[in-house]
C-alpha cells in the first residue's frame, strides 16, 4: 500500500492492451521453447529416428534411404530451423505411415477434437458453476452436502469408465444417441453433434466437479470479505450482495482453474476418443505413437501445445479484463 494512488489518467483499454502485449511475448517464447524441447527429445536424443521408425528388422539400405528422405544428414540447427520455417508456412512435413501431409491430417482431426473439447468445457461450466454457487449460498444445508458429495464422486470416476456407462445407458439401453463413431460435419451436422454429445459429457464430468468445488470455496471466501458487508450496509440482502459483488470476485480463482483444465481436457480426449471410436486428434496421436510416426507425433504435439498455451493466454487476458489491479503492477 502507500504507493500508486497517483496512477493518474488510467485508460483501462490501453492498460489491457499493454498487459496483453506482455502476455503475447511470453506466449511466443513458450511456444519456441516447447518446439525446441520437442525437437531435442524426438530428433537429437541418442538413437536414429529412421532406425526407430523402421524397427529392428529394417535393412541398412532402407534406413539410409529414409534418412535421406527425412533430411537427417543436415546439421541439427538447420533441421530445427527448417522445421520451424515449414510450420510457419503451414508445412508440418509428410507422415511416413499415412503418406499424407501432417498438416492435412491434423486439420481433418481438429474438426472433431476442438468441438469436443469446447463442448466439454462449456458443459462443465454450465453445470459446475451454478452448482458451486448454489452450494455456497446454501452452505451447511442438505443441498450443499449433496452437491459436494456428487462433486467428490465426479472427480473420482475415471472418464473412460463413465463414457462406457453413458454408452450402456443412452446408446445401448435407451437408444437415444449413437454409441460411437462420427459423421463428418458437412454430411450431417445434426448427427455430428449427436455423436459428440456423450463423449463431451464423459469428458466434462470431472471438470464440472472441480469447478463446482472451486466456485463454492471461492464464493464462501468472498462472502466473508469486508466489501460484502459494505454492500449489505448499502441495503442489499446477503444473496443480493453475493450476486452483485461476490460472483465476479469469486470468478478470479475459477478463471485460473479453467485455464489449467483445458490442458486436462485436451489430454482427456486421447482416452475418450478411443472409447467412442472418434477420428480425432487424440486417436491420431495414439495411432502415430503406436506406429512410431515421429513426424506426425511431432506435428500433433506442437498443435496440442499451441491449443493449450492459447487458452492460457486467453485466461490471462480475461483475468486482466475482470481485475483492474492486474493491469498495472503486472510486472511481478
Amino acid at each position: 500500500m502507500g504507493g500508486g494512488p497517483e496512477g493518474g489518467d488510467t485508460a483501462p483499454s490501453r492498460a489491457v492492451i499493454a498487459y496483453a502485449l506482455r502476455r503475447l511475448i511470453g506466449f511466443a517464447v513458450t511456444l519456441l521453447v516447447a518446439a525446441l524441447v520437442i525437437f531435442v527429445l524426438l530428433d537429437l536424443l541418442p538413437g536414429d529416428p529412421a532406425q526407430f521408425i523402421l524397427g529392428i528388422n529394417a535393412t541398412p539400405a532402407s534406413v539410409a534411404q529414409l534418412r535421406l528422405q527425412m533430411g537427417l544428414d543436415a546439421p541439427a540447427y538447420q533441421r530445427f530451423l527448417g522445421w520451424l520455417g515449414g510450420m510457419l508456412q503451414g508445412d508440418f512435413g509428410m507422415s511416413y505411415t499415412q503418406r499424407a501431409p501432417v498438416a492435412q491430417l491434423i486439420w481433418d482431426r481438429l474438426g472433431v477434437t476442438l468441438p469436443l473439447a469446447v463442448f466439454a468445457m462449456v458443459i462443465s461450466m454450465v453445470v459446475g458453476l451454478p452448482l458451486g454457487l448454489l452450494a455456497a449460498r446454501r452452505r451447511g444445508k442438505a443441498i450443499d452436502t449433496t452437491i459436494m458429495v456428487l462433486a467428490q464422486t465426479g472427480v473420482a470416476i475415471p472418464n473412460f469408465w463413465f463414457g462406457m456407462l453413458l454408452v450402456l445407458v443412452f446408446a445401448v439401453g435407451l437408444r437415444w444417441l449413437p454409441p460411437g463413431g462420427f459423421t463428418p460435419w458437412i454430411e450431417d451436422s445434426g448427427l455430428a453433434l449427436r455423436g459428440l454429445l456423450l463423449p463431451s459429457l464423459a469428458l466434462a464430468l470431472p471438470q464440472a466437479s472441480i469447478l463446482a468445488r472451486v466456485m463454492r470455496t471461492a464464493l464462501v471466501d468472498v462472502a466473508g470479505q469486508d466489501f460484502i458487508r459494505t454492500a449489505r450496509a448499502k441495503g442489499l440482502t446477503m444473496d443480493e450482495a453475493l450476486w452483485r459483488h461476490g460472483v465476479r470476485n469469486a470468478l478470479l480463482p475459477v478463471l485460473t482453474i479453467l485455464g489449467l483444465q483445458f490442458a486436462y481436457l485436451v489430454a482427456g480426449t486421447i482416452v475418450v476418443e478411443n472409447v467412442f471410436y472418434l477420428p480425432g486428434l487424440g486417436k491420431l496421436i495414439y495411432t502415430a505413437i503406436l506406429e512410431r510416426d515421429l513426424i506426425l507425433v511431432r506435428g500433433a504435439t506442437i498443435i496440442l501445445i499451441l491449443a493449450v498455451t492459447s487458452t492460457m493466454l486467453l485466461t490471462d487476458i480475461a483475468y486482466a479484463l475482470v481485475d483492474p489491479r492486474l493491469r498495472e503492477g503486472a510486472q511481478r
Binding site: M1, Q225, D226, F227, R229, T230, A231, R232, A233, K234, G235, L236, T237, E240, H245, R248, N249, V322, D323, P324, R325
Partner: peptide
C-alpha cells in the same frame, strides 16, 4: 436490508477491503 440502506449509513475501519476491488 432495505431499512438499513435507507436510514443508516455505515463507514468501516479499513477502506481498502471495505470497497469492492473490481
Amino acid at each position: 436490508a432495505r431499512l438499513r440502506g435507507q436510514r443508516i449509513g455505515m463507514v468501516f475501519q479499513e477502506p481498502m477491503t471495505a470497497l469492492n476491488p473490481l
